[in-house]
Amino acid sequence: MILEILAAVLIGLGLICCCIAMFGVYRMDYVLTRIHAAAIIDTLGTLLIFAGMILLRGLGWASAKILLILAFQWLTSPVSTHRISKVEILSNPDYDKHCEVE
């Protein structure tokens, strides 16, 4: 019972993260800021949702697969985000008009 409530709380938090990220993508107006918002889904949102799913199912092969998916997601998604922002910086000479980049 306690585990299920905990899992529900975790999945709910993950969904809230996804909603915030969606709102951010909709609200921001430039590629770099939008990517900044969208990356929340891939890292924090998936972490919370997958943690809730593991709590629901208990340890076993299913949770091992979920952990593998999480590892794959965490390895690939930041790299693709980084590549997209790199392409934007390389191709748009006046990117710092839209947002401050160190």
Binding site: F72, L75, T76, V79, H82, R83, K86, L90
Partner: peptide, 21 residues
């Protein structure tokens, strides 16, 4: 030449890890 110059360390390392998988 631009690709060679900008040959990306992050992408290279992650690909080295993920490619066999």
């Amino acid at each position: 030449a631009l690709d060679e110059e900008e040959r990306n360390q992050i992408l290279g390392h992650i690909t080295t890890v993920l490619m066999p998988v």
